[in-house]
Amino acid sequence: MDQTKVFKMPFATVYPLYVKKVERKGRTKTEVDEIIFWMTGYNEETLQQQIKDEVDFETFFQQAPQLNKNISLIKGVICGYRVEEIENPLMQKIRYLDKLIDELAKGKSMEKILRK
């Protein structure tokens, strides 16, 4: 898939898929939100506004209040790529988020997911 297509994809389209994925594995929307808050600095109100405004991934990350300084601690493979080796900064952030959601769905503790 062309990377620019992913960048222009509305976050509001992908967010419910994240929630659905983790709920099938017994996790919760609240945990998905906690991951997003930790990674981006959004809170409940600002996250819901981004979803309501149907911003794309590029805008979602550009407008993030504060990216967590520990996101560089996220390591591993997602979609066949090592997240720490992805060269495009925006694609790397998208894949970091994908990786955290995968870890949640696989049953990792929130403490480990949030790199505490």
Rank of each mutant, 00 (worst) to 15 (best):
T13R: 06
V14M: 15
V14E: 14
V14H: 13
V14C: 07
P16T: 13
L17T: 13
Y18W: 13
Y18S: 10
Y18Q: 03
V19H: 06
V19Y: 06
K21S: 11
V22T: 07
E23V: 13
R24Q: 15
R24G: 11
K25M: 13
K25C: 03
G26D: 12
R27D: 00
K29P: 00
T30A: 15
E31N: 05
E31H: 11
D33Y: 00
E34Y: 07
E34D: 14
I35R: 03
I35A: 06
I36C: 12
W38N: 13
M39D: 02
M39W: 01
G41Q: 04
G41V: 06
Y42A: 02
N43R: 11
E45H: 06
E45V: 12
E45C: 07
L47C: 04
L47M: 06
Q49A: 12
Q50N: 00
Q50T: 03
Q50D: 00
I51P: 08
I51H: 05
D53A: 15
E54D: 07
E54Q: 09
V55P: 03
V55Y: 01
D56I: 01
F57G: 01
E58D: 00
E58Y: 03
T59E: 15
F60N: 03
F61C: 05
F61N: 03
F61R: 04
Q63A: 06
P65I: 03
P65H: 09
L67K: 12
N68D: 12
N68W: 12
K69E: 13
K69V: 09
N70L: 15
L73F: 08
I74T: 14
I74W: 11
I74N: 11
K75N: 10
K75A: 01
G76I: 00
V77K: 00
I78H: 03
C79T: 13
C79Y: 14
G80W: 11
V83I: 15
V83W: 03
V83H: 09
E84N: 13
E85S: 12
I86F: 09
E87A: 14
N88R: 09
N88K: 09
N88W: 02
P89I: 15
P89M: 10
L90T: 08
L90S: 05
L90R: 08
L90A: 04
M91T: 12
M91K: 07
M91G: 04
M91D: 10
Q92W: 08
Q92N: 11
Q92V: 11
K93N: 12
I94Q: 05
I94A: 02
I94D: 01
L97I: 01
L100I: 05
L100F: 04
I101E: 02
D102F: 10
E103W: 11
E103R: 15
E103N: 15
L104T: 11
A105W: 08
K106V: 01
K106P: 02
K106M: 08
K106T: 03
G107T: 13
G107M: 11
K108P: 02
S109D: 14
M110Y: 04
M110N: 08
K112G: 07
I113P: 02
L114D: 05
L114P: 05
L114H: 08
K116R: 14
